[in-house]
Structures are given as C-alpha cells and as structure tokens.
C-alpha cells in the first residue's frame, strides 16, 4: 500500500526553549496564504514564531490580523443572534474593533516589558507575537461559535449568555497567552515576570473594552453606552438585575 509522504513533525510548544527555532526543516517552510497562517498558528506555532523572528514578517502579521478580524466578525455575528435585529451587525463590528484597539493600546507596553525582560525582540516581532495572540484567540472562538449559537437560540437570560461568552473568551485568551509566553521563551529573556504582568494588563484592558463598547449581547437605544462603568461594577449590576428578574418570575410561577 502506498503511504502518503508525511510532513516532518515540528516540536511541541512545550519544547520551545529546549529546541532552537528553525532546527526542524518543517519550521522553515514558508507560510504563503492566510489559510496557511491560520493552520500554522494552530498546528505549528513554532513555524509562526520562526517566520516572525527570521524573515520580514509584514505579510504574516497582516495575515494574522486579517484572521483575527474575520474570526472576530464571525463570532460577533453568532453573539449578535442572541438579540437579533441591529445587534447582528453591531456585535461583530464591536468585537472586531474592541479586539484590535485593545491590542493597539497594549502594544507599546508589551514592547517595553519585552525590552525590560532582556529579550532582543524587535518592535515588528513583538507586533507579530501580539497579532498571533489575537489570531489564535479569535480562531479558537470560532471553534466555540456553534456551541454559543445553540445556547443563544435556547437561552433567554442575558447574564447566563454573558457568562458563557466570558468563559469562552477566557479559554481562548489563555491559549493565546500561552503562545505569547512560548514565543518570548524562544528569545531567552532574563525574566518572564514582565510578560506575565503585561498579560494581566492585557486581560484587564480586554475586559474593560467589552464593558466600554457594550451592549454586545443585549440591545440598547444607542450604539455606545452613555454611562461609563468599570467592568466589575457592570457585572455586579447585571447579576443584581438577573437575580431581581428571577425573583419576579418565581413569584409569578
């Protein structure tokens, strides 16, 4: 029986520090298309790291930003089905804009933290790592999209749906951050504390961004909120409203 020639295996992400980038010829294969970039970020993260580190990575960075934007749009559409109507276009726009702007806000501090930790990464390389983080998170969100859609169709509670999307976002972002840590580890920094502190800042910015561009799930008369709130206060308000709503429906039953 003829066996198909298999592509040489790339080392796992956990081997990032032990094995130098590009030591496996598979990692050096060019990433030509957007689809190839999406596949590489999932299956061969070290190949992405190699190309961000060694070649001129502008095309790859654009490809990953495009992946993040496209997947964000799709996931936003699914999130928008919960309320329907104008949220079908508002939610995708808000998710994509929020994702990209929060990345832009955090880019200067990521570069500074990278330098402070002793890593020799260039600004374009750091931008590439951030784009890969956003792309990987967004691609993973697409994986969750069918599940989210099923729940959207069958759930009425805004708070429950919010918690579900938050859970998916936490899982997707933690995989994105895992890629970022591994990418910086390949550059042999003196310390990783700075990158971990930055990760906390990034998570806080994204959580606040979700609140700043609300509503994403529910409906509102205005596109953006008129009242400014911190995300914890917003969550507590939502929880309070939900508990009051449940109490009223129980009383009716």
């Amino acid at each position: 029986m003829n066996e198909l020639p298999s592509a040489p295996e790339t080392p796992h992400l956990s081997q990032s520090i032990a094995v130098p980038l590009g030591s496996n010829p598979a990692e050096q294969r060019p990433i030509g298309t957007v689809v190839a970039a999406a596949e590489a970020i999932l299956r061969e993260p070290r190949r992405v790291m190699y190309h961000l580190h060694n070649s001129s990575p502008a095309r790859l960075i654009w490809a990953m930003l495009l992946i993040a934007a496209f997947c964000g749009l799709l996931y936003g559409l699914v999130a928008g089905t919960f309320s329907g109507k104008e949220q079908l276009w508002a939610a995708p726009v808000k998710i994509v804009v929020g994702l990209l702007i929060s990345g832009l806000i955090c880019l200067p501090s990521l570069y500074i933290f990278s330098c402070l930790s002793g890593s020799p990464a260039r600004l374009t390389e750091v931008l590439g790592f951030l784009a890969a983080l956003l792309a990987l998170s967004a691609v993973l969100l697409i994986g969750f999209a069918p599940v989210a859609w099923i729940f959207s169709a069958s759930t009425e509670s805004l708070t429950a749906m919010g918690a579900l999307h938050l859970g998916f976002w936490i899982i997707a972002t933690s995989f994105g951050l895992r890629f970022l840590y591994a990418a910086f580890a390949t550059l042999n920094p003196k310390s990783v504390v700075g990158i971990r502190v930055w990760a906390l800042i990034f998570v806080l910015v994204q959580l606040q961004m979700m609140t700043a561009i609300r509503p994403i799930l529910g409906r509102s008369e205005s596109f953006l909120p008129t009242q400014k709130k911190f995300f914890v206060a917003h969550w507590l308000d939502c929880l309070g409203n939900s508990v009051r709503g449940d109490a009223r429906s129980t009383a009716r039953d």
């Binding site: 806000i105 955090c106 800042i201 400014k228």
Partner: peptide, 16 residues
C-alpha cells in the same frame, strides 16, 4: 510613555 495609551483608555472609561 508606553503606558500612556492605557492611561488614556482608563480616563476614557472613568466617570466624567
């Protein structure tokens, strides 16, 4: 300076 976008974002989200 690198934290200034974050600071602007925080101010934008702070009650006026």
């Amino acid at each position: 300076g690198s934290f200034s976008p974050l600071m602007f974002f925080l101010i934008w989200n702070t009650p006026p």
